[in-house]
Design a protein around this nucleic acid. Structure first.
Lengths: 234, 234
DNA sequence: CGATCGCTTGATTCCGATCAACAGGAGTGG
DNA sequence: CCACTCCTGTTGATCGGAATCAAGCGATCG
């Protein structure tokens, strides 16, 4: 049960930050033409920890590109059970919808900066330039691919396997100085992996005892036996 | 553990069927301009029960439109655990990838007919016509939306809730004469819902005893208390 | 008609959830 | 500065829902 659900939504009212803090990784360099285009077109907005970027079923007015921090996108059941569909880290795009409304809620995990572009402007751009349209499609397809990998994890993997997969994913996305730097809490990890906070904690402790990982602090993880984790990843 | 994994793949070698059997539902009428375009451009191919349409990681050469029968798309873990990502029924499009290879395996659940179009032809068409490009994107986004709903189901719902969600989904997609006509086996349902075959069977039996549903035969289900199912669907 | 396959049902097990206690920081205010 | 609370994470004990193991049943098919 996530109990922090009362933050303002106002995008328009947010202060525009002139110089966004540099992302810690190489994500600043454009991965695609249209991500660069977003950087050119957009204004930077800062969100503080646990602040909502947009809510499920709200009109999809903007597209977002993370420049620093981390965002979670999730769905809720009526009784508060939560499933996080994705963590968006610097360089990631989110909020791009084919429909008129957002399919899930987006919240800042930590203090974050994002570049915001009007959806209508992006769509107009895509209509004019076929390459942009294709990039947009490719982005959505990548999201779909990640969602499908997560389906396999949630439907068929054990707790150990889930955590192993998560660690390998984060090692690719958020390594800094040889260790994974987690921006998210145990609760976020649990809601991403379809587990409870206790199971995540226990599994990490077991892996530490087995010397598969090291836990210098609870937000910092070093992989000590990557082959073993890869095997668990199947 | 699915034990039927040895079927030929050859698309090129398949016999072209002149007149595809009529789909049982209204799916023949075009839902989108580009689905109609696929119908114009493509050749019809028949697949028999359990035959593979394409395998994971194979080059994505074709795009498919189901005209009769049903297709499952899934991923496997190395030890055979299976997660079905989607059931494709008449009117559905599948196999459209942004990358060069297929992200999962597609197999016929029952004897099926599909219209096949070269991916390159579809992409060329999209490059020429912005509306087609947009339809392609919308199709991928719809898939993504369905995948995200499934994430919530697999990550956070109980067995009862999963089955209820499945029944409501199938009621929308495969109702015929007031009852759901299931094209797939219990094993397929289990691998879609992240459960075992026994749990699916038991849950359906419980629902029958509670008069929530009726089971005239094991492939035929009538919903007797839809509000209750909707409540379970959250 | 026997054999196989798909489904159901029962008995038991086990993994992860739940309940509960506690520890270590971070932030707050005196 | 310290006492206080709040918050996050860890660990232990117990529980429970779904998995697993095991028959048995009915339909289809050679």
């Amino acid at each position: 049960m996530p109990s922090e659900r009362t933050m303002q939504t106002s995008v328009a009212a947010k202060p525009i930050v002139a110089s966004a803090p540099r992302p810690p990784r190489a994500a600043v360099t454009g991965r695609s033409a249209w991500a660069d285009a977003l950087r050119m077109m957009g204004a930077t907005i800062a969100y503080s920890r646990n602040e909502e970027v947009y809510g499920e079923d709200e009109p999809a007015e903007f597209v977002y590109l993370v420049t620093s921090g981390a965002i979670r996108t999730y769905k809720l059941l009526s009784d508060g059970r939560r499933q996080i569909a994705a963590f968006r880290l610097p360089g990631d795009i989110f909020g791009l919808e084919a429909g008129e409304t957002h399919a899930f809620t987006a919240e800042a995990i930590a203090d974050s900066s994002v570049i915001v572009v009007r959806r209508s402007a992006v769509l107009a751009h895509a209509a004019r330039d076929g390459a942009v349209a294709r990039d947009m499609w490719a982005e959505t397809a990548r999201d779909l691919g990640r969602a499908q990998d997560l389906l396999l994890l949630l439907g068929r993997k054990s707790a150990q396997e889930r955590v192993a997969t998560f660690l390998l994913e984060m090692a690719d996305r958020a390594t800094y100085g040889g260790a994974i730097e987690l921006p998210m809490s145990r609760q976020d990890i649990a809601d991403y992996l379809g587990l409870t906070i206790e199971t995540v904690s226990r599994t990490l402790s077991q892996m530490e005892h087995a010397a598969t990982i090291a836990l210098p602090s609870c937000r910092r993880i070093e992989l000590r036996n990557r082959p073993l984790l890869s095997r668990l990843n199947s």
